[in-house]
Amino acid sequence: MVTLLQPRSAIVAAWPLRENAQAAAQARDLIREALTGLHIPQDPVDDAVLMVSELVGNAVMYGDPPFELVLRSLEGELRVEMIDSGTISPAMRATGVESEHGRGLGIVSELSGGRCGWHNATYATRSGPEGKAVWFVIPTSQVDLL
Rank of each mutant, 00 (worst) to 15 (best):
V2Y: 07
T3Q: 14
L4V: 10
L4S: 14
L4Q: 11
Q6R: 11
Q6V: 07
R8H: 10
A10G: 14
V12P: 12
V12Q: 15
E19H: 11
N20I: 02
A23F: 00
A24P: 00
A27Q: 00
A27V: 01
R28I: 01
L30P: 06
L30V: 05
L30E: 05
I31L: 10
T36P: 09
G37P: 14
P41R: 13
P41L: 09
Q42F: 02
D43N: 08
P44N: 13
P44K: 07
V45N: 12
V49F: 08
L50G: 04
V52R: 03
E54A: 03
V56A: 00
N58P: 03
V60K: 01
V60R: 01
Y62F: 14
Y62P: 08
Y62I: 05
D64V: 12
P65V: 00
P66L: 08
V70W: 14
L71M: 13
R72E: 15
R72K: 15
E75K: 13
E77K: 12
E77C: 08
L78R: 14
R79W: 05
R79A: 12
R79N: 06
V80D: 10
E81A: 06
M82V: 06
I83M: 03
D84I: 01
D84Y: 02
G86C: 02
T87W: 00
T87A: 06
P90C: 01
A91H: 13
M92K: 13
M92D: 07
T95E: 06
G96E: 15
S99L: 05
G106W: 11
E110Q: 10
L111G: 01
G113T: 04
R115A: 09
W118T: 15
H119Y: 08
H119T: 12
N120Y: 11
A121F: 08
A121E: 14
T122V: 10
Y123K: 13
Y123T: 12
A124W: 04
T125F: 04
T125S: 09
R126S: 11
G128D: 07
P129Y: 07
P129G: 10
K132V: 04
V134G: 08
W135K: 09
I138L: 04
I138M: 01
P139I: 01
T140Y: 00
S141R: 07
Q142E: 13
V143T: 06
L145I: 14
